[in-house]
Structure formats: C-alpha cells, structure tokens
C-alpha cells in the first residue's frame, strides 16, 4: 500500500511537470497576452515596456525555467492582469467552485442512483421507461441553453430564485461557504441544478444498467432463494456490485464538473475559478492558466487515487498496484 502510494505520487509529479510544459508551449502558440491587454493606442515603446515588465521578451525556455524555480518554492508567478500571486487568486475562487461541484454531485447522486435503481428494477414498466426517457433530456440540450432557461423561468417569470451571483457566505473551518445561509442556498440551487442535470442522467443510466445486469446474476437468485428480503437483496448485494462502474464514472465526472463548471459559472455569474479561468484564457493570463491546471490535475490525481482505493475495498478481487 505504501509502495503503491509513493509510486503514484512520483508519477503524478511527472504528470504535473509535463502539464506545465504543455501549457507554456500551448499558450505561447496561441498568442502574446500583451496584444490583448494593452490599450490599442499604445505606442510601440509602451508595448515593448509591457512585454519586458511581464518577462515575455525572454526566450520561452528561460521563462519556463524561471517558472519552475518559483514553483518549487510554491510561487506560480503573478497574474498578468491581476498583479497578485496566481495561486492566491485561484485559491480565493476555489471554495465557490468546489461548493457548486459538490452540490451538483450531491444532487446527481441523491436523485440519480435511486431513480436508476427504480428504472432498473421496473425496466418494463411505465415508471422505468419514463425515467429513462426523461433522463435523455438531461444531456440533450447544451448546458448554456438550459442555464438561461432556468434563469428565465425561475428568476424572471416566477421570481422564486435569484438570477445569479453567490449570495451571503459564512466561514466554516476557515472556508467561506454559502450553503449555510438562506440567501446563499437560494443562489446555489439554480447553478447546481444546471450543472447536475447531465450527471444525474448519467447516474440514472449507469445504475439502471448495473441493476439490470446484476438482477440476472446467480448470486441474486441464490439470495432470493435463501429468502432474503427484496430490499436487502437490492440494497446490499446488488448495490455493492453496481457501485464500481458508478463510482469510476462519477469520479471522473467530478473532475469534469470542476473543469466544465466554466459554462455554468459564466451563465450564473458564479464567482468560481471556472469563470476565472475562462476569463484568463480569454486574455492569455498564463500564470493563472498554469496554476489552475496544476490544481485541477492534482485534484484529478487525488480523485483517481481515491477511486482506485475504493475499488479494492468494494471488490476484494482487485488488488492495488495490479502488478503480475
């Protein structure tokens, strides 16, 4: 287990290194941030000054080395547009995004898995079919479109919920959270629902597929033959077996929830890091882009690690490390 962890961590360090290099080269190819940031009537002298100030006149490899040296000390450089440490700017925004993503995942799980189980058990009945049909709606329409629709219906027409922004926050263990205040909760519902729609559909479908498959398995027949109650058969035995694909896919989706919260955050003016990174990509604010990606990759790596460990707990046949 320990060896496994150490190996994973050292591999991850390489991933992070490669990632940072890719972003440096990628952003370099997209363009020069000064072309976008500078006032259009600036003189060439002013242009040259700005390029020099931000260190963009140095060769790319030198810029990268400077970045690496700083990164080793936890300094990812100053944002080009905010002139504050990139890491700080992102960490300020991280809680809002995590809160949104967790809420969305929570919604997906509490609605998706039970509905999926119902759909799986009653596959040939109207309930099951309708659950499946409605679940298709969850991923057929683009997020941005659904988002604005939610706003038009629930904020403009019905005036039940606020149209955007984050609402009041309170500190919980030193982290600002909004789900503990009424205004915060009201602000959270629409964007979280918007973000959760796709994941809920996916959870329904995955659960249904798993339930259907496992219901045919011999162990279910035996369990039933043994006289176990239906609730116990499904709640315990079937659940345990369907959790693996559901956890893998939802685990991956949690990462993509964070990465793709971009659209939802833009539509709902949610002050998270998705909105930040889309703005930063728009102006090629490289320090922010790099730091953002390093943070998300780290989160991915941790999620995957947790998923792999969960496998080994849920399914004893899977061994960590998998070396043969």
């Amino acid at each position: 287990m320990l060896a496994f962890l150490i190996r994973r961590i050292s591999q991850s360090a390489v991933v992070l290194l490669v990632m940072s290099l890719l972003v440096f080269v990628g952003v370099f190819y997209i363009g020069n941030p000064i072309d976008i940031l500078i006032a259009p009537d600036a003189t060439p002298a002013e242009y040259a000054r700005a390029v020099h100030e931000l260190g963009l006149d140095k060769p790319l490899w030198e810029q990268y080395t400077i970045f690496l040296k700083g990164a080793l000390h936890g300094d990812f450089g100053n944002s080009f547009v905010y002139n504050e440490p990139a890491l700080k700017v992102i960490l300020d925004r991280l809680p809002a995004t995590l809160e949104l993503a967790f809420t969305a995942m929570f919604i997906a799980v509490i609605f998706g898995i039970p509905l999926g189980m119902v759909a799986g058990m009653k596959a040939n009945n109207w309930i099951g079919r309708n659950i499946m049909r409605f679940s298709i709606l969850g991923f057929s329409l683009p997020t941005f479109w659904v988002g604005l629709m939610l706003i038009i219906i629930f904020s403009v027409q019905l005036n039940w919920l606020p149209s955007g922004g984050r609402g009041e926050t309170v500190m919980l263990l030193g982290i600002p959270v909004s789900f503990l205040t009424l205004s915060g909760l009201a602000h959270l519902i629409l964007p979280a629902t918007n973000l959760a729609l796709f994941k809920t559909s996916l959870a329904i479908r995955l659960t249904r597929a798993g339930v259907q498959e496992n219901m045919q398995m011999d162990y279910v027949k035996f369990a039933r033959a043994k006289g176990l109650s239906e609730t116990r058969v499904i709640g315990l035995h079937v659940m345990k077996n369907i959790m693996i694909p559901v956890i893998t896919v939802l685990g991956m989706e949690f990462g993509s929830l964070i990465a793709f919260a971009v659209v939802t955050e833009t539509i709902f003016a949610w002050p998270g890091m998705g909105k930040l990174v889309i703005d930063s990509i728009g102006v090629l604010d490289r320090p922010i882009i790099v730091a953002y990606l390093l943070i998300t990759v780290t989160m991915f790596i941790i999620i995957n690690l947790v998923v792999d460990i969960l496998y080994s707990i849920l399914d004893p046949r899977v061994r960590l490390g998998q070396e043969r």
């Binding site: 000064i34 100030e53 931000l54 080009f80």
Partner: peptide
C-alpha cells in the same frame, strides 16, 4: 507601476 500590462505612460 510594476508589471503593468497597459499603462498611462503615453
């Protein structure tokens, strides 16, 4: 002003 990406210098 340090690190200014576009200043009023002009």
């Amino acid at each position: 002003v340090p690190n200014s990406p576009s200043s009023f210098t002009g």
